[in-house]
């Protein structure tokens, strides 16, 4: 628990007080960043929804951090009452890459979890539908992983049209670049 509590509204303070080992960082006027361990996240969302009026799950983001072999999951919840957005950050290990679904707390999670499952391969236990959605014609690895190189994939799958007219050669001969 950090000392920056003062700028977090009292009501929120009350909720976060019930949770231990939560790091709260205010980031601007209506943004609060919360860092916590993965297993506490559903509890936090539940508390925020029940006592803080954070009814609206704005989105779930996933960030791939290959150096530490972790996924960072960010849950953005918004309160219509206190007009504040809390971003709850948590880290999960890349393998096995499993996490619990928060669909029963916030129904919109269904879409985001399906999307993250498709783009990153994270499995959300209890999510209502993790079938392929956008990438039904795709057979490669989850494309948003940093280990997937889209440039290399494109180079080996598609051919480029030859286009090298004189004016392009002239520019290249001049050393290319922008003319002022």
């Amino acid at each position: 628990m950090t000392s920056q509590r003062a700028s977090v509204p009292a009501q929120l303070d009350h909720i976060l007080h019930e949770m231990s080992e939560v790091r709260v960082t205010p980031k601007g006027e209506r943004r609060v960043r919360v860092d916590l361990a993965a297993d506490r996240l559903p509890t936090l969302l539940q508390l925020l929804k029940g006592h803080g009026g954070f009814l609206h799950l704005s989105s779930i983001s996933c960030v791939d951090w290959p150096e530490t072999d972790e996924f960072e999951l960010v849950y953005h919840v918004w309160s219509y009452e206190s007009k504040m957005l809390i971003s709850a950050h948590t880290l999960i290990a890349k393998s096995p890459g499993r996490f619990v679904s928060v669909y029963d707390i916030h129904a919109p999670a269904g879409f985001y979890e399906r999307d993250i499952h498709e783009m990153y391969g994270v499995h959300f236990e209890g999510s209502p539908n993790l079938n392929k959605f956008i990438l039904t014609s795709w057979h490669g690895p989850p494309p948003m992983l940093k280990s997937f190189d889209t440039r290399a994939y494109v180079d080996e799958t598609y051919a480029w049209r030859d286009y090298n007219p004189q004016w392009l050669k002239d520019i290249a001969a001049k050393g290319g670049g922008i003319e002022e």
């Binding site: 795709w138 494309p143 997937f148 440039r151 494109v154 051919a159 049209r161």
Partner: peptide, 16 residues
């Protein structure tokens, strides 16, 4: 449709 355009390095769209 000619040569990939904006999405020349996208894995999801065809180029020609």
């Amino acid at each position: 449709t000619i040569n990939g355009g904006m999405y020349w390095n996208s894995y999801a769209t065809i180029k020609q």
